[in-house]
């Protein structure tokens, strides 16, 4: 829960939302905490919200660190796991 993961913004949606991609996972997240976001920006995503903007370099570094440390997959699972919220 404490972790945040870098993602690239693929499209902006109405209502302060955006579709982002993290590795091969696509996710609809909120951008309500940022002043402005555009397609192609890198953002740090935490519990479904973009917390701040990142440089591409910082994003890539963080992703490869998470992969090295073996925590990337766990995070992606958590992000994929929407099982409990569709009812």
């Amino acid at each position: 829960m404490c972790l945040a993961i870098p993602a690239i913004v693929q499209s902006i949606e109405p209502g302060d939302m955006a579709i982002v991609a993290i590795e091969n996972v696509r996710k609809r997240i909120s951008t309500a905490l940022l002043d402005s976001v555009s397609e192609g920006d890198y953002v740090l995503v935490h519990v479904g919200y973009a917390l701040h903007l990142l440089s591409e370099e910082e994003a890539q570094q963080t992703l490869s660190l998470m992969a090295d440390a073996g925590i990337l997959e766990d995070e992606l699972d958590e992000i994929r796991g929407e099982a409990s919220c569709d009812t």
């Binding site: 997240i29 909120s30 479904g48 919200y49 796991g81 409990s84 919220c85």
Partner: peptide, 11 residues
């Protein structure tokens, strides 16, 4: 229910 985000709780 376990949620990933407050957005899920709203849903």
């Amino acid at each position: 229910r376990m949620v990933y985000s407050t957005l899920d709780a709203l849903k």
